[in-house]
């Protein structure tokens, strides 16, 4: 166990180093010249040369990469090309906060709708209620965000005039309602499917059969024996959803005009302001890798049957 943890923790920085190599490579060899992005099309060669020297763009790739990683570890992702002299991290932090808030609310919506529905479907396995729930979730799951977002705006903002069409005002502002639901609906479908599948498996297990045979009341069987064990695989998804706070709401942020990570990443791709998108991808990857590690540990702590290899 300790050996396994040790190996995983040792492997993690190596993995992130490779991630940074790919990201830095794409950013460096991608289209556009950082000097041109900063100075516009008409620049004189002398100034350009000076900036290149200052930014270290004339150094060999490997040196640039090592310098980038060194700084990134200390939380310094360089300066934005477009927003002059603004460190990337100070640009990103407020956006990260916005996206995290939106996704957290969406996540709460998803789990509070999805879990009971999945539970319900599994308990009614074999009757018409189960496929009913499953197919209607698939129906919503398949709905592209492109669809739900404009549809929500059309119905609740334009026709019923309940909320504004777009904008951002934090968690306690009513403008969060539509985007959070839009992100939450497909998310809840994931939980329905997961909880259902997991419950079905547990309900079929020997210990549930034994509990029933002992004459434990059905509510106790479902709650204490089945549901608690069935939630185990759900932990995985919770971890990944929380780690995926970056990419998940990209389209929704764009359509609802929310100033989150999605918006700024995409803008930085359009304007070739690579330090920003590079930082977003790196931070996102780090979050994913760490979440992955934590999930594995929680898993073994919660379920002693799982052995680490």
């Amino acid at each position: 166990m300790i050996k396994y943890i040790f190996r995983r923790i040792l492997w993690m920085p190596l993995l992130l180093l490779m991630v940074s190599l790919i990201v830095f490579g794409l950013g460096t060899y991608g289209p556009g010249d950082p000097v041109e992005v900063q100075l516009g099309n008409n620049y004189d060669e002398k100034t350009a040369q000076r900036i290149r020297d200052k930014m270290g763009l004339n150094d060999p790739f490997v040196f640039q990469w090592i310098r980038y990683v060194k700084n990134a570890v200390r939380g310094d992702f360089g300066e934005s090309y477009v927003f002059k002299n603004r460190p990337v991290i100070s640009l990103l932090l407020p956006k990260l906060l916005v996206s995290a808030q939106l996704n957290l609310i969406a996540f709460l919506i998803a789990i509070s709708i999805g879990t009971p529905l999945g539970f319900y479907a599994a308990v009614h396995y074999g009757s018409a209620k189960d496929p009913g729930v499953v197919i209607s979730t698939l129906f919503f799951y398949a709905m592209p965000v492109f669809f739900t977002a404009p549809l929500m705006i059309l119905i609740f903002a334009l026709k019923l005039d309940l909320v504004p069409t777009s904008g951002w005002g934090g968690v306690f502002d009513k403008r969060i309602i539509l985007p959070a639901i839009t992100v939450g609906i497909p998310g809840s479908a994931v939980f329905v499917r997961l909880v259902r599948a997991s419950m079905l498996e547990v309900l079929d297990s020997d210990y549930v059969k034994l509990a029933r045979a002992k004459g434990v009341s059905e509510i106790m069987v479902l709650w204490k024996h089945a549901f608690r064990n069935a939630m185990l695989p759900v932990i995985t998804i919770i971890g990944f959803t929380l780690a995926g706070l970056f990419g998940g709401s990209l389209i929704v942020e764009i359509i609802f005009g929310i100033p989150g990570v999605g918006r700024i990443s995409l803008d930085s791709v359009y304007s070739r302001d690579y330090p920003i998108i590079m930082a977003v991808v790196l931070i996102g990857s780090t979050a994913l890798v760490i979440a992955n590690l934590i999930i594995d540990f929680i898993y073994t702590l919660v379920d002693p049957r799982i052995e680490m290899q």
């Binding site: 993995l15 992130l16 490779m18 991630v19 790919i22 990201v23 794409l26 950013g27 060899y29 991608g30 289209p31 995926g244 970056f246 990419g247 998940g248 990209l250 990443s265 995409l266 791709v269 998108i277 977003v280 991808v281 996102g284 990857s285 994913l288 890798v289 992955n292």
Partner: peptide
């Protein structure tokens, strides 16, 4: 494979599509 899956996939796709097109 582990390396690829430790990227946030949507962002990786966007980054790839944006940087590889001119090449």
């Amino acid at each position: 494979g582990e390396l690829v899956s430790s990227f946030p996939d949507i962002l990786l796709i966007i980054l790839l599509a944006a940087t590889l097109r001119p090449r």
